[in-house]
Structures are given as C-alpha cells and as structure tokens.
Simulated scan of single mutants.
Amino acid sequence: MRFHGWASLITAALMSTALASSPAHAVGGGGVKGGSNGQGTISASASQSRIKVTQISGPTSGKRGTLSSTDVNWKPPPCWYEPVFSPAQLKDFAENNGNGDAGLRDGWYGSKLWTDHFKDEKDAITIFTSPSTVKGYKNYNLGKDGYFWRGVAPDVVSIDDTSLCSRLMFWVPAGQIPKVENAPTPETLADYAYNKIKVPTTSVELKPTAKSTVKIPTWVWLDKGTFREVKVRAELPDTGLWAETTAKPVALHLDPGTPDAETIPASGDCTINDDGSIGEPYEKADADKTPPCGITYLHASNGTPYQLKASITWQISWKGSDGSGGDLPDGTFETTQDMNVQEIQSVNH
C-alpha cells in the first residue's frame, strides 16, 4: 500500500486498516478510458467536471471572449457532486490504474486502496471527510444499475471551505439524484455555463475614422446583426439534468478614456435597437446633427491617443430540465481602441 501526503501518514499510523487520505488537489489530472457503457474518457481528478457545454446559437467564428459579471459578489458554485464511474469503469480503473481522487479531499494512490474498499468490502476510515467511516462495497456493485458519485471542484484552490462536497465516493442508483447537500441541479449547470459563454469582441464603428476633432461629435455605431443572442446548453451525463443559458446583448457603454469628453447620451449607455444595431451610421447629411450614440472630446490627444472603451452589456437568463429558470447577473465584455483627437475645427465629410 502506497501513502501520499502527511494526512495519509497520520491515518496509517493511527489505524493500520485505514485507507490512505490526502487533499485531492494534490493528485494529478490523469484520465482513464470509460468502462462497459462506452462513455469515452473520464477523469480521475476531482478538478475535472463531466458537464458538457455546447453552444446552440449565436456567432461561432471570429474573435470571442468570456463575460465578466456586473455583480462582483456573484460566483458560480465552488463544488457539487456528479457521477464518475459505472461499476465496470470503477473495476477497470481500480485494477489497472488506482491513482486518483476517491473524494474531493481524498487522493488515493495504489490499486489496493481502491480494491480494498470498492471490491473487498473493507470500510474506509478517513481524516477529512464526513462521515469518517464509510462502509465498503462488494465487487464494485457489478450487476447493479447506477454510478459512483464524487465531489467535483473545477477550481479547488479557491474553495474557502474544503469540507464542501467532501464525501467519499458513494453509490447512487441509476435515474436518481442523491439527496445530499450540494447535489447538482439545473441551476448548478446554468451557473457553470456562465463562464463558458463566448461573445464577440467586435470593435465599434466610428466617424470620423482617422481622427476626431475637438468639440465635434464622433458618431459611434454597430451595424445590425453584429450582436446576437448566444445560447449554450450544459448537460451532466447520466443524470438527465440540463440547463440552457442565454446571453442577450442589451446595451453599449462608452468610456472615452479621458474626463475631458462628453458622451451621448450623457450616461454613456447606448441601447441596442430591435434589429440588433447600436446607434446610427453616419451619413454626409448628418454633419450638423447630434448622434444618438457618440462622444464629443473637449481636448486634443496631443500625440498620445485616448483609449476608448466600448463595453457591451449582456443580459443572462436560463431554463432547466425540470422547468425551473430565472436570471443570472448581467455580464459585460469590453474592448479598447485608440482615439486620436485633433484641434482643427473642421472635418472632412
């Protein structure tokens, strides 16, 4: 039997029959091929979720990036439980690999650790998990329909309380969601998908294009269709759980890059029109008009361009497999582009 980490050594010293335990994040993210149910590659690391996220609408090409939540206090759940092994997969893993995470805080190194508990019915005695003594299983539950579940934390380092989702891997019959704290829900999947949404990074159109002029409005716009809804679907295999999370563009916010400027409208927020456009394209006949979306610079940039920031606000909503749904905090994506401003009080239309 091979032990890993100080916690395992203490366990071994106190109880000769105990199974080794160490913080799960110390274990590498090794993988193991799927078992008899043909699910493909599964992970032996508790930092790897099996949630599958697929984009089902919205642009898929060009430069794209992830959203930043407008609510600085909002965070997706740090961890949850999900199915990891079928009986056949666990047998294959335990007898041919045996290095991985038996729980969010329990990294087991060595096949005997796995076979003792999951094949030979030996109770597992751990330091970090609750309950600390877990009844063993007979022959990996082969012949039974279900899965062994384990806590998963995609960013285990950031979890303030690592006791969350720390139960040792446990059995759940097929078609059931375990009645434990931090069991997955459609909202869990929606929250997880938030950071998987990719939105376009298109820069805004400007007129004048080369240089703006002090005290003459610069028109800002985006053509229709540039921004469209982005919808992603997050599914947790072998649970029947899914959620669709939709990001809808609702506004453009302009930050001129200097306090010596005025935005149009004054708030700097340009709404998105029904056809998906923002503002209005500049026409020669508009020389004496005020743009619906724009900026008036009050001082020249004097060789060092201002950094115009254009931030799109995306409204986020979701619906789930059980009919649930709701809103998540708005997200933003910001792009920056140079703005040169000249003193000459004329402009070539």
Rank of each mutant, 00 (worst) to 15 (best):
F3T: 12
F3W: 09
H4N: 12
A7Q: 08
S8Y: 00
L9H: 08
L14F: 04
Q39D: 14
Q39I: 03
Q48E: 14
R50G: 15
G58F: 09
P59S: 08
P59Y: 02
P59G: 12
T60V: 10
T60A: 13
T60F: 02
K63Y: 02
S68Y: 03
D71H: 03
D71N: 14
F85I: 07
A88F: 01
Q89G: 15
E95F: 05
N97K: 13
N97W: 07
N99G: 05
N99E: 13
N99M: 06
G100F: 01
G103W: 04
L104F: 05
L104S: 14
G107S: 09
G107I: 03
Y109R: 13
L113W: 04
D123E: 12
F128A: 12
T129Q: 15
S132R: 08
T133P: 08
T133V: 14
G136V: 01
K138A: 13
N141H: 14
L142M: 10
G143C: 06
R167E: 14
M169T: 11
F170Q: 13
I177M: 07
K179Q: 14
V180K: 12
N182F: 09
N182H: 13
P186T: 00
A190T: 04
T202M: 15
S203I: 11
S203L: 15
V204S: 10
P208S: 00
K215R: 14
T218A: 06
W219P: 13
W219V: 06
W221V: 04
V232Q: 07
P237S: 10
D238C: 09
T246I: 15
T258C: 08
P259F: 00
P259T: 00
A261H: 04
C270D: 06
I278N: 07
K284D: 11
A287M: 11
D288I: 03
T290E: 15
C293G: 08
C293I: 01
G294R: 05
H299Y: 00
S301T: 04
S301W: 00
N302S: 10
G303H: 04
T304A: 13
A310M: 11
T313V: 11
D322P: 05
D327I: 02
G331I: 06
T335L: 14
Q337I: 06
M339N: 09
Q345C: 02
V347I: 02
